[in-house]
C-alpha cells in the first residue's frame, strides 16, 4: 500500500504517494530529480547521501521516504542561493577539497551540520565531525582544510550561517 509523504525540500513543498520501502535518497533522486545526493554504500557507512532533516545531518539511505512526512529537508541543491555559493561550497572549491566529487555533497552537508553545532571547531573536532563520511580521492587533507576555512568565513560573516538550515529560497 502506498503512503502519502509531504515534505519541504530546499524550501519547496512536495507531495507524493510512495511505497513504504522507498528510501529517502531514492525519493530525492528519482521522484524529485535531485540527483546531487549520492549513494555510495548499502550499510550507512559512506555518508555520500547526507542531507539535513529539520536541520540535522542524516544519511538519507537509512531512512524511508515515509519517515520524512512533514519534515523540512535541505539537500546539496539547496545550499547555493541566487547563484552564490554557500561558504562551505566556496571553501571546498578554494581548498581543492574534492577530486572526483562523488562524496562531496555528503561532506558539505555533514560539514554544514558540524559548523552549525560548533562554529569554531579544532582540527580534531572537524575530523571527528566528519567520521561518518568516506572519501577515496583526497586523503581528507584538503577536506579538513576546507572546513577550517569555511568556519573562518562563516564566523566572520554571521549572516552566512543562517543559510545552512533555513532551507528555503
Amino acid at each position: 500500500m502506498k503512503h502519502k509523504v509531504a515534505t519541504t525540500v530546499n524550501g519547496r513543498q512536495h507531495e507524493h504517494e510512495v511505497e513504504p520501502r522507498l528510501l529517502l535518497v531514492h525519493y530525492l533522486r528519482d521522484n524529485l530529480g535531485l540527483t546531487g545526493t549520492h549513494i555510495g554504500c548499502d550499510t550507512s557507512q559512506c555518508g555520500a547521501c547526507t542531507i539535513l532533516v529539520d536541520g540535522k545531518a542524516v544519511k538519507s539511505c537509512t531512512m524511508f521516504a515515509v519517515q520524512a512526512e512533514g519534515r523540512s529537508l535541505v539537500t546539496i541543491e539547496g545550499m547555493a542561493k541566487g547563484g552564490e555559493l554557500h561558504p562551505i561550497q566556496q571553501a571546498f572549491w578554494d581548498e581543492h577539497g574534492l577530486q572526483c566529487g562523488y562524496c562531496t555533497p555528503g561532506f558539505i552537508m555533514a560539514a554544514a551540520y558540524l559548523l552549525e553545532q560548533n562554529p569554531n571547531p579544532t582540527e580534531d573536532e572537524i575530523r571527528k565531525g566528519l567520521e561518518g563520511n568516506l572519501c577515496r580521492c583526497t586523503g581528507y587533507v584538503n577536506i579538513v582544510k576546507a572546513v577550517q576555512s569555511a568556519a573562518k568565513t562563516m564566523s566572520a560573516t554571521p549572516a552566512k550561517k543562517a543559510t545552512v538550515t533555513a532551507g528555503g529560497n
Binding site: R29, L34, T35, G36, T37, H38, I39, T75, I76, E77, M79, A80, L85, Q89, F92, W93, H96, L98, G101, Y102, T104, P105, I108
Partner: peptide, 16 residues
C-alpha cells in the same frame, strides 16, 4: 578547478 562548481552544488552528471 573548473569541474568544481557543478560538483559542489549537486549538478554533476554521474551515470546514475
Amino acid at each position: 578547478r573548473r569541474e568544481d562548481p557543478r560538483l559542489i552544488t549537486g549538478h554533476g552528471h554521474y551515470v546514475d
